[in-house]
C-alpha cells in the first residue's frame, strides 16, 4: 500500500531525513520507534506533503506521490493525526470533524452523516460534546477529536504521531481500544511512538529510526525479545555515528 524509497528532506537547513525506505502492506499495523529528535515527526510531515523540502519516491496505493501537494495526498486516502493534536481550538467538535471531511469524495449529506456516526460510535464522549469548543476539552478528548478528524476523510492509511503522549493511563487504554477496533475493521495504520511497550503491544511489525535513518525493521515479537532492549536507541545511535 505504501512504498517509500530513498526519502530525504528537512527544514531549510540541512536534511533531517537521510534516505528513508519503508514498506507497508494493506491491513498491516507498523510501529515507528525512535528517540527524541530522531526525525519521526519530520517523516510524517514528508509523507503528508507538509515538509518544506523533500525528495525521493513515495508510492501510495499505486500512485507516485513524492511531489504531490498535501491536499492531493489527503484526497487519495492518507491522513495524519499530528503530534500535539493541533485542534482548531475555538471551533466546536463538530466543526473540527467537518473540516476533516473537506476532501471526502462525493460528500453527500448521507455520506457525511455516516462519517460522523462512525466517529461518534468510536468515541461516544465526543457525541455528547459535539457543540463544545475543542479548546475547552480535556487532553484525552482533544486526542479523540484529532483521531476522529483524520478519520472523517475516510483514509485507507492512517498515520498517528504519538497519540498517547501526556495522557492518563485510563485514557490511553480508551484510545488504544479504539485503535484496536479500527485495526479490526481492516484499517492500515502507522503508529509513531517513543515508548516501546505500547508500540510493541499494538503493532505486529516495528521499525526503529535513529538520526534520520531507519536502523532496524523486524517483527515486534523479535524486537521485544532482544536482551539489549533498554539500550537499543543508544546502540543504534552509536552504529550511525560509526558508519
Amino acid at each position: 500500500m505504501l512504498e517509500v524509497r530513498n526519502l530525504c528532506g528537512g527544514y531549510g537547513g540541512g536534511n533531517v531525513l537521510h534516505g528513508i525506505d519503508l514498506t507497508l502492506a494493506a491491513g498491516q499495523t507498523l510501529a515507528l520507534l525512535g528517540p527524541n529528535g530522531a526525525g519521526k515527526s519530520t517523516l510524517m510531515a514528508a509523507l503528508t506533503g507538509t515538509l518544506d523540502k523533500r525528495s525521493g519516491s513515495m508510492r501510495f496505493d499505486g500512485r507516485e506521490m513524492g511531489e504531490a501537494a498535501s491536499h492531493d495526498i489527503v484526497a487519495h486516502g492518507l491522513a495524519l493525526v499530528p503530534e500535539g493534536r493541533h485542534m482548531f481550538a475555538p471551533f466546536s467538535v463538530e466543526d473540527n470533524l467537518r473540516l476533516g471531511a473537506i476532501r471526502l469524495h462525493h460528500p453527500t449529506n448521507a455520506r457525511l452523516q455516516a462519517q460522523f456516526d462512525g466517529v461518534y460510535r468510536l468515541f461516544p464522549r465526543l457525541a455528547e460534546r459535539r457543540n463544545q469548543a475543542t479548546g475547552t476539552l480535556s487532553g484525552g478528548e482533544q486526542q479523540m477529536v484529532a483521531i476522529g478528524r483524520a478519520l472523517m476523510s475516510a483514509p485507507r492509511l492512517l498515520l498517528l504521531d504519538e497519540p498517547f503522549l501526556g495522557l492518563a493511563p485510563k485514557v490511553v487504554e480508551e484510545i488504544h481500544d479504539a485503535l484496536e477496533r479500527l485495526r479490526g475493521a481492516g484499517l492500515t495504520m502507522l503508529l509513531v511512538e517513543q515508548k516501546l511497550d505500547i508500540a510493541l503491544r499494538f503493532a505486529a511489525q516495528a521499525c526503529v529510526m535513529v538520526k534520520g535513518r531507519i536502523m532496524l525493521n523486524e517483527s515486534s515479537r523479535a524486537l521485544a525479545e532482544r536482551a539489549d532492549l533498554d539500550q537499543l536507541y543508544f546502540q543504534l545511535a552509536r552504529a550511525v555515528d560509526m558508519s
Binding site: 491536499h71 489527503v74 482548531f88 475555538p90 471551533f91 473540516l99 478528524r149 483524520a150
Partner: peptide
C-alpha cells in the same frame, strides 16, 4: 471555516486537505 482554520493553524489546515 476553512479560511479561519488556515488562520488558526496552517499545518493542521493543510493536513485536513485545505489547499493553502
Amino acid at each position: 471555516r476553512s479560511f479561519e482554520a488556515v488562520a488558526l493553524d496552517r499545518k493542521a489546515a493543510a493536513l485536513m486537505g485545505i489547499n493553502l
